[in-house]
Design a protein around this nucleic acid. Structure first.
Lengths: 292, 292
DNA sequence: TTCGTTCTCTGACTAAAGTCAGAGAATGAA
DNA sequence: TTCATTCTCTGACTTTAGTCAGAGAACGAA
């Protein structure tokens, strides 16, 4: 905790201040950030609004300023004429490249006084901090399996299974878990999001005998290695416990090696097949402690 | 380099934004920062001005705002009536404690989604990043040994010797290195500063036979372990090389174990005593390569 | 076709941050 | 004692950031 606070102070001083100083040399910070965020391929205005969390009127005016300086072009969307897309002009791209250059210069000014060994240590520690901060930015929330984010996860989950099972995957042959069965009070569906984008899910199918099945565990490849699977599983266990469940069960395919490892280290023990899921090779069970 | 840039983006997003949001809940960021910076023991106004890099008029007004809210008291300095000192009132201290609390809350909100193991990894990586960023904030510059910062270093250096030598230290018995001998063209004096405060020094006494003595190597205890000694030594070698020096010599006391280790790993080899410095137990020499 | 919704833009603001010139008192060196 | 310098403060600004209400076009579902 103290480490976090000390870190915050040092880093905002060193990076924050300098970053701002560098980036805002030629134009106000808000405009510079916007210019950067539009990116090489352009962005839809509404996406800029949500990413930078700006008031729509304010954003509109900022874009006008950039337009007046000849850095940005606003074009209408072909499909939906309400949606606008901001694109950088040649001059805008040049200015963005300049921002990149300044940002590089800042990075250099930080690395320059350090020895080779210190630089590589710093790079490693920065990567660690970054990964863990990203992990802590992931939000896990109960959701309806019919919500768009949940749907996205389920599609990705099935696509993943089809790719990783030796035999491919046909949902109709598998034991079903319909939306209703994953919606309270019959079940629970969790969705993990990062910056508002869905990056993982997990579900419970509750039974009347104080047992429940863990289903639909999926983590997007972009956030693997951040411990999100373990976190989802833990939150499912909390949900199960809150619903009076004593025993969790799940089955899995031999192709999903990380998942199998996760279940084992999370206290699940392998048991005899308790159902006839055709795609399963391993069946696991965990008794929830009363202290959880 | 890429690691640094990616890190900057993630961290300013996560920490910077949240930090600001938390701190500025009750009052504008500028005031909150000032309140925090004044500190428990108060600060002189001019030091606040330089630390926060504020316009004097602006700072004056900010202080007035805090004064009107009864959080700050401005008192004159006894010695110099031009200088003012800002002190927190009881209410001010309470508000500062509240800022601390919010800062803690922020730290918690970052740690909360992580497992115990991830938390300790994050703490370790943050400490590393912080140490290395601090190391990179240290500035090393050629200075006159008569400058106040240099004088401060020299006093600290002699005090350190007196404490660490078995026999104590009496400068008059030691081989002298007068200010003139450490000032161009006769010599070089380097001072290292962090946030404007002197934290280390090192000097060269140049001879006419292409040799030079390394003298006055000192690093403040607050910044030990950041590689500053090595950096100072390296910069002295660069200075020596630029002055046409081929061989560097130095002597040191057996009590200064880290220094001895530094010299050895920096390529200095122990040689026979080349002078009769009464406090020395080890004599070292290094031939500067032409590629440096 | 209607009607609620989405998306962007305009007008009319406010608050915060920051700049610049200069005044006035205190100080220290000549 | 004079005079340049240091330190703080005041007045008069500008710029940046951000908010809020509402208008108007486009869209999608009924």
């Amino acid at each position: 905790m103290t480490a976090v606070r000390r870190f915050n102070r040092t880093v905002t001083q060193r990076i924050g201040a300098l970053d701002d100083a560098y980036l805002s040399r030629s134009r106000p910070l808000g405009q510079a950030r916007l210019l950067w965020e539009i990116g090489v391929d352009g962005s839809e205005v509404r996406s800029l609004r949500s990413r930078l969390d700006l008031d729509s009127g304010y954003l509109s005016r900022l874009l006008q300023l950039l337009q007046n300086d000849g850095l940005v072009r606003i074009e209408a969307n072909d499909v939906d004429a309400r949606v606008r897309r901001a694109r950088l002009t040649t001059a805008g791209l040049a200015e963005r490249a300049e921002l990149d250059r300044l940002s590089d210069e800042l990075a250099c000014s930080i690395l320059e006084p350090l020895t080779e060994e210190q630089r590589s240590r710093l790079a490693g520690a920065m990567a660690d901090v970054e990964r863990l901060l990203i992990a802590s930015m992931v939000r896990v929330e109960v959701s309806d399996p019919r919500d768009p984010d949940a749907r996205h996860c389920l599609r990705a989950y099935f696509a993943e299974l089809a790719k990783r099972f030796d035999s491919g995957f046909d949902p109709t042959r598998s034991i079903p878990a319909a939306d209703d069965q994953l919606t309270p009070p019959a079940g629970v569906f969790l969705v993990a999001t990062l910056h508002g984008d869905p990056v993982g899910c997990g579900a419970l199918k509750l039974h009347t005998d104080s047992t429940a099945d863990v289903k639909r565990m999926w983590v997007a490849s972009s956030v693997r290695g951040l411990g999100l699977g373990r976190r989802l599983l833990g939150e499912l266990e909390d949900q199960a416990h809150a619903n009076g469940i004593h025993t969790l069960r799940l089955e899995t395919n031999r192709g999903l090696t990380e998942a199998i490892g996760l279940y084992r280290t999370a206290g699940y023990r392998e048991v005899e097949a308790f159902n006839d899921e055709p795609y399963a090779h391993h069946w696991f069970e965990k008794t929830l402690g009363s202290n959880e």
